[in-house]
Amino acid sequence: MKRDYFSQGSPSDHRFGDPRSGTCMALIDGRFLIWMAQQGAVGATGESVNRQGLLGLLSQALSQAGLDVDLRRIYWYSDRSDGLIIDDQIVRLVQTHDADGGSSLLRSLGHDLKQLADHHACDHVLVASDDERFLATIDEAQLSGLSVHLLADESARNMTQMVRTDPGWARLLSQADRRVVVNSQALADMLQGKLTSGMGLAVEDVEELRQSMLEVITAWWADEPEDLREDLRDALQVSRGIPQEVDRQLLLRMRQRLARALSLPEKKMLRETLRAVVAQTPVDTAATTQSEDLPQEQ
């Protein structure tokens, strides 16, 4: 039976209601993120911040936590303006921690979390803070149906030890739907502007990932019959969208290859690589002509 990549599929194909998917906002305490980057990271000193790769790094961390979410926007809370204007990032200026013990941050971030929950503006929120005073606000947001995840470093992988060494943060992390772990060194590199890929990966890692994608797509494309290749070529000429069945197959193959899900920026790169492969593959006109020249059975 011929497969149809362009049909809508049955309702069971869609993941409506899947708690691991949906839209996400990130509420990031800049002071805490800098502190977290300094934990065990080589050369992570000072207070300078480069937020250019932040969305990609957080998307990658969410994906590795099993959350296939669309990170729409980042709210950055800081006591200083860094002068950067970055798409999908909004800066909230707060008082210094030394001036008010973090009360200004508590009010600003807590108010935004409550607004997102009250207006059902997203499905997930990623919070980066170790302030235990957020416990009640997070609990209230969760009771409204919002999934609230907390960003943490590698120490969160051993919660038993954290209960002994930092009980306040352990209580806060225990309230989270998921603890989203980010590598301290990768975070430090990003804040210092060493990552330019926009995906939370070093440039050489991005090139290795791109090569893996090319190998997976090329192998899949070689196995496809010519009629389905033609259908896909035609579809991509009239639309930028990838047919759902093709997208699903390639995402599954990449998940198997990497032993993890792709982040949103990585999915975009996969789809761009597919378009490039399809565009560069010529139609096998010789085979078509040869078949037309064959004598017809009487």
Rank of each mutant, 00 (worst) to 15 (best):
Asp29Lys: 05
Trp35Phe: 08
Val42Pro: 06
Ser21Gly: 08
Ser7Lys: 11
Ser21Asp: 02
Ser10Tyr: 10
Arg20Thr: 14
Ser10Ile: 15
Trp35Cys: 07
Tyr5Lys: 01
Gly9Lys: 09
Ile34Glu: 10
Met25Asn: 05
Leu27Lys: 03
Phe16Ser: 09
Pro11Val: 10
Leu27Gly: 00
Asp29Gly: 04
Ser12Met: 12
Arg15Ile: 04
Phe16His: 12
His14Ser: 15
Ala41Lys: 08
Trp35Arg: 14
Met25Gly: 01
His14Ala: 15
Tyr5Ser: 02
Arg20Trp: 04
Phe16Cys: 09
Pro11Met: 09
Ile28Lys: 00
Gly22Cys: 04
Gly30Ala: 14
Asp29Pro: 04
Ala37Val: 04
Leu27Asp: 00
Tyr5Ala: 08
Ser7Met: 06
Arg3Asn: 11
Ser10His: 12
Arg3Ala: 12
Leu33Phe: 04
Phe6Leu: 13
Gly9Ile: 08
Trp35Pro: 00
Pro11Asn: 09
Ile34Asp: 06
Ser7Asp: 13
Val42Asn: 12
Thr23Leu: 04
Pro11Leu: 10
Cys24Tyr: 06
Arg15Glu: 09
Ile28Arg: 00
Thr23Ile: 08
Gly22Pro: 02
Ile28Phe: 02
Ile34Cys: 15
Ile28Gly: 00
Arg20Phe: 02
Met25Trp: 02
Val42Glu: 15
Pro19Ser: 06
Gly17Tyr: 02
Arg20Val: 01
Gly30Ile: 03
Val42Leu: 12
Arg20Lys: 15
Gly17His: 07
Pro19Gln: 09
Gly22Tyr: 01
Gly22Asp: 01
Asp29Trp: 03
Gly17Ala: 06
Gln39Asn: 13
Pro19Phe: 03
Thr23Gln: 09
Pro11Gln: 02
Ala41Pro: 06
Gly30Trp: 05
Arg31Glu: 13
Ala41Phe: 06
Arg20Leu: 04
Gln38Pro: 04
Cys24Arg: 02
Gly30Arg: 09
Pro11Thr: 05
Asp13Glu: 14
Phe32Val: 10
Phe16Asp: 10
Asp29Tyr: 04
Phe16Val: 03
Gly17Pro: 03
Asp13Cys: 12
Gly17Glu: 04
Trp35Gln: 12
Met36Phe: 08
Ile28Val: 13
Ser12Arg: 11
Gln38Met: 15
Gly22Thr: 00
Asp18Gln: 04
Gln38Ser: 15
Ser10Cys: 06
Trp35Gly: 14
Trp35Met: 13
Ala26Leu: 05
